[in-house]
């Protein structure tokens, strides 16, 4: 959750004039080749693609809508409905499985009250565990939150990450809301064994969990890379 973290706009509609602009960036390559980059652009900007965008792209690139639709439905990165503002991925590949993702999944499901591929009802957090390996098994078990990798996650760290999301999303709302209004109550359940949630949580996580990039930078600055000894040595 650094400054570069990517938060998705919570949009329900895709602006077709923006789709045309994205298509215009890829006029110099063949339409078939442009299909993937165009839809990646839409997906990254809106967090989803829809049928209207599909027709518009087909029209702009002079391809048949069937061809566009057939390609798009094949790849999992393209979502067909809007997701939450925050995306929480849990890698469940073979490497992460051996180091204990089953327990992490239970933590998320219990605390957010949502299952695989679901979004909290207020549209804040989407949870997506997937068996496809993320290719970062050296940090397993691995969690990706808003495009940032978090490695060696155990149950405590998972709780910490959810606490922080909770604080980011709902504490601000608390200050604005009048006592008794709905917004006062955090949707996300407090961590078990954290005592009085409202105060204990904040104290407990005042030092927030560093993300892998920050962690690595810090470690490198301290020790410098070790010659040929496996990058895990430095942490």
């Amino acid at each position: 959750m650094s400054d570069q973290a990517h938060h998705y706009a919570v949009a329900r509609e895709i602006d077709l004039s923006r789709v045309r602009e994205i298509c215009d960036q890829y006029r110099n390559i063949s339409p078939e080749e442009a299909l993937m980059p165009v839809f990646q652009g839409i997906q990254e900007e809106y967090g989803f693609v829809n049928e209207a965008a599909c027709y518009e792209v087909a029209h702009q690139l002079n391809l048949s809508p069937t061809q566009v639709y057939s390609s798009l439905t094949f790849y999992w990165i393209y979502k067909w409905r809007p997701g939450g503002k925050h995306r929480l991925f849990l890698c469940e590949g073979s490497g992460c499985y051996t180091t204990g993702t089953t327990r992490l999944r239970r933590v998320v499901e219990e605390r957010l009250g949502i299952g695989a591929g679901e979004t909290t009802f207020d549209g804040k957090i989407t949870f997506q565990p997937f068996s496809t390996c993320m290719g970062a098994c050296e940090w397993s078990p691995l969690v990706e939150l808003d495009g940032e990798f978090y490695g060696f996650v155990d149950e405590a760290r998972m709780n910490q990450l959810i606490d922080e999301l909770n604080r980011q999303e709902y504490d601000a709302a608390d200050q604005l809301a009048a006592p008794g209004s709905d917004a006062q109550y955090a949707l996300v359940a407090p961590a078990p064994n954290s005592g009085d949630a409202s105060t204990a949580n904040v104290a407990q996580i005042s030092e927030r969990a560093p993300s892998l990039t920050e962690y690595e930078a810090e470690q490198t600055a301290q020790s410098g890379p070790q010659p040929n000894s496996g990058n895990a040595d430095t942490r």
């Binding site: 078939e32 080749e33 993937m36 980059p37 990646q40 061809q67 390609s71 999992w76």
Partner: peptide, 25 residues
């Protein structure tokens, strides 16, 4: 540089070609 869109099968060489051509992998 051509970015894929999440499909293990596209590591198979002929599926990779299909995907590069904008089709299903």
């Amino acid at each position: 540089v051509h970015r894929g869109a999440g499909a293990y099968i596209c590591g198979e060489e002929s599926a990779l070609l299909e995907s590069l051509e904008g089709k299903r992998g």
